[in-house]
Design a protein around this nucleic acid. Sequence first.
DNA 1: ATGAAAGCGCTAACAG
DNA 2: CTGTTAGCGCTTTCAT
Lengths: 364, 364
Amino acid sequence: MRYHAGVSAVDKTSQSKPPAAERDRRPRRRTGGVTLREVAELAGVAMITASRAVNTPELVAPATLARVRKAVAETGYVPNMLAGGLASSRSRLVAAVVPTIVGPVFLEMVQSLTESLAASGYQLMLGQSGYAGSREDALLDAIIGRRPDGIFLTGIMHSEDGRRRLLASGIPVVETWDLTPEPIDMLIGFSHEKIGAAVVDHFAARGRRRLAALTGDDARALRRKDGYVQAARARGLAHDELDGLPTLVVRAPTTAGSGRTGLLDLLARHPDVDAIFCSSDLLALGVLIEAQLQGIAVPGRLAVVGFGDLALARDFHPALTTVRIDGTSIGRLAARFIVDRAEGREVAQRIVDVGFSVVSRDST
Amino acid sequence: MRYHAGVSAVDKTSQSKPPAAERDRRPRRRTGGVTLREVAELAGVAMITASRAVNTPELVAPATLARVRKAVAETGYVPNMLAGGLASSRSRLVAAVVPTIVGPVFLEMVQSLTESLAASGYQLMLGQSGYAGSREDALLDAIIGRRPDGIFLTGIMHSEDGRRRLLASGIPVVETWDLTPEPIDMLIGFSHEKIGAAVVDHFAARGRRRLAALTGDDARALRRKDGYVQAARARGLAHDELDGLPTLVVRAPTTAGSGRTGLLDLLARHPDVDAIFCSSDLLALGVLIEAQLQGIAVPGRLAVVGFGDLALARDFHPALTTVRIDGTSIGRLAARFIVDRAEGREVAQRIVDVGFSVVSRDST
DNA sequence: ATGAAAGCGCTAACAG
DNA sequence: CTGTTAGCGCTTTCAT
């Protein structure tokens, strides 16, 4: 349509008022949405007043507020939070990093985090690092570049470089799902070693003497296994010839399929095993499925404990004894920590051990 | 008080001197990070050149590029994408709305979407609408306000108001997981009715005559059930006295627990049922568990079909026949659509029916 | 290939 | 309670 004049035509722009759209002088992009300026003009107030009406209505006189609200409704104004975030250094964005979203263990946590944040007007950005943590570093730049008001990490950040960059960014960080004496910033976790020990207690209390472990090969699962083996040794439950316990390590992410084959493997090598601690409920479910198929009575001849407390663990037959982590609490607490920080409040307790529970059901 | 005391958390590379540090005129906040200006100064180029070196290195002379890169490395500069997004109207953020992240059906899709987007430098924002869709409207403002480069919707946006706002925002939208002749913008889906019909075919081909349905009460599951009942009627498989089929509707989200009680309910009322279509794999797994407990042979006396193709469906015994949706493809395709749009390319086909497949296993 | 100027849309700092 | 002013950090436009 319009040919961009732009050339010649000196046009000193006596910038008095918006010229009648007759000639565009310096064409600059306009995103095209309704802006606060238009709302303010329509309401007959200054931009900042319109801004206050939207963000802190309690600071605005009722009559003014009503006029601005009317203008907002008429124009369909939606605040540009990118601009707002830039001006105020508050993006109201929180980044979460999970190894993978598939695989049910972290879901409850992410769900609770999303909801709690949404309730405070924050939005979640999701990043997947992969179990290997390979993408973690690239993710970090993508995340820090968005200047989120908080970063939620599943697990501890081990890479020195990652820690440094996170620290340098000045963004509040919550590490979760593990414990360490030196978190980057805040920490909400539990002890994987203690879980292993608690499972040994559970088995021992039920008279099991021949413990075994079936575990995924990710770092935290292996630490649970180590805690389990240690505790078994301490109780004199270790196999002497093994200098430990019969253990089978399978590739993460774990599946019921590897649980099924894992059981067969384990029994082939150690037929007298009478208790298995699995590093995930899926693995444990696989063990239960295969045990049933093989006519191995659970809990009669074999006791099984899982990890994660899937909904299915309760509904299975036999119902699965498992270790429960309260993901909902972790998510909610993390959201509170981050929002508190973002709004300038001090977080009283920076390291929280949320613990775990062994949910005793029919499989033991 | 070690971290985040306000601005500078680490020693900022002994930068020579912030110019004109003494003549403070009007104090204004500084977010405290390294900015492009500092990089440019250190490299001895204009800001815009530094910007080009970072974003479009092919437009910059090699020597200049090297100097800028060095400055970036020395300062630890991370571009502020909020500022960049504001200036360029390209946030490189994509919003995804799912009913819930818990409940495994959408996960595969979200995972694939996240990864595909990340590969193109885009980040996912996650929003949960709840099955009722109640929060959908509030979510919409939160999303539009962030000016994402694309919006991914699980399901069709039905609310007129929502459609209007989405349209008005001018943001590319991908609706998924369903079909409609009039999508807001782009659509990647499949027919729930046809799924119901395909399951009837599957049962009929295996000689089943007494079909039943066990279904969650969310809209799409009910449409699958309707397609199922219609097709059964068309084949003369309907119960005359019921004017349809034995059907039990349970509250979403569905669980194995409701599958177990559902089976008992259904059989109590219709003992002759020989095939059940469940609206989710979890429900179907519950049916399998309870059937085994009751000594009902599957598939001998009862055939069972699920929906979603959980990993566990394959590993169960008997392995579960189920309807598979290729969430990975949907996610990948959606990412491509959105990125193409964001980068100004035209999307050739705006409506895609990805279909589904009935994965035949031992439960039928 | 590089640069100067002019904002993107909004809010923090002061005044009144 | 309302307004003025000056940017947040970056990229676009136009000009070398």
